[in-house]
């Protein structure tokens, strides 16, 4: 079968990246010129991260991230661009996600509640058997 590819996220084009000037550009000028960053750091106001990835969907396999670019822009305390870095998929680390989840103490809808909801609703197929 045929693999399908889907792109997610966004990273400024190579020309736009070339226009970023360390020491001059600020957080505002960059966001205005190349777009709001995809995400940022834990503590706001320190770094911009633009993330673009390509996923490969192939048959019944789990969609796999086959390509990723992370543009890292660090700013000093005055918000001036201090450092530019481009990371790729290989720079990422394989992480085993923790299975445990904080309980949101909400009861799921009960089977009985849904069962009762269905009494007395009809459709044509109920009256005209198909096979």
């Amino acid at each position: 079968c045929v693999a399908q590819f889907r792109d997610h996220g966004y990273i400024p084009s190579t020309q736009a990246r070339a226009s970023l000037a360390v020491g001059q550009d600020t957080m505002e000028t960059i966001a205005e010129r190349v777009g709001t960053p995809t995400t940022g750091g834990v503590i706001r106001g320190q770094s911009y991260y633009y993330v673009a990835s390509r996923f490969r969907h192939y048959g019944l396999l789990e969609p796999e991230e086959v390509q990723r670019q992370v543009l890292v822009l660090d700013f000093d305390s005055a918000g001036i661009l201090r450092n530019i870095e481009l990371l790729a998929l290989e720079d990422g680390r394989v992480v085993e996600l923790e299975r445990r989840v904080t309980d949101d103490n909400l009861s799921d809808v009960s089977f009985l509640a849904q069962l009762v909801g269905g009494i007395g609703r009809f459709e044509a197929s109920d009256f005209v058997g198909s096979e």
Partner: peptide, 20 residues
């Protein structure tokens, strides 16, 4: 509601009347 709980009959030309 997305459920249907039915007790009844149906008719179709291949099997005639059926209790369902």
């Amino acid at each position: 509601p997305t459920g249907r709980l039915t007790f009844g009959g149906n008719y179709n030309s291949d099997n005639g009347f059926a209790l369902v």
